[in-house]
């Protein structure tokens, strides 16, 4: 299977460099409101949760698109919008339960395309809250963390 992008809120410091890097990469400007991922801040709990597109295997957005303008990129696994076909009807944005289909001020929809396999957000994340790797490796690492905790308890 392809590499996947995952987020781990327990490691997120809330610095938002990922949001700025994303908008800079795709739109040439520093603008979190144009980022394809969103770090939701729960200041009162000191908690920051990066919401990312999960590139679903059975995507809500693809199923909702009436003109088949969203397809899965076989190489990267990214669910991408084909601009030429898209009518900006926002059916995909309404369908996505994670809020990861965004709409810019001109009304165009856009979403994470994994930067052709080199996500700009991951490059600037120094805490490890964002990772782009093979699922087996990512979830093995989580198992190691969990095991070391229970191991400590034993």
């Amino acid at each position: 299977m392809n590499k996947i992008l995952v987020s781990d809120y327990a490691k997120c410091s809330g610095c938002k460099s990922c949001e700025i890097a994303c908008s800079f990469h795709h739109f040439g400007e520093c603008n979190p409101s144009l980022a394809r991922l969103t770090v939701v801040a729960f200041n009162e709990r000191g908690l920051f949760v990066p919401e990312i597109c999960r590139q679903c295997r059975n995507p809500w957005c693809v199923n909702a698109c009436p003109v088949d303008a969203i397809v899965k990129d076989a190489e990267t696994g990214a669910v991408v919008i084909i601009a030429e076909l898209c009518t900006d009807c926002r059916a995909c944005a309404d369908a996505c339960p994670f809020g990861m289909i965004k709409v810019n001020p001109s009304g165009n929809v856009f979403k994470c395309d994994l930067c052709q396999g080199e996500p700009a957000c991951v490059k600037v994340c120094t805490t490890g809250a964002l990772k782009y790797a093979k699922p087996a490796d990512i979830y093995f690492e989580r198992a190691v963390i969990s095991a070391s905790k229970s191991g400590g308890a034993i």
Binding site: K11, S13, G14, C15, K16, S17, I20, G46, F48, T127
Partner: peptide, 14 residues
């Protein structure tokens, strides 16, 4: 201390 967080935008020091 539960975790280190960033006090402002785009800071890797946390």
């Amino acid at each position: 201390v539960v975790r280190n967080i960033s006090c402002s935008v785009n800071c890797p020091l946390n």
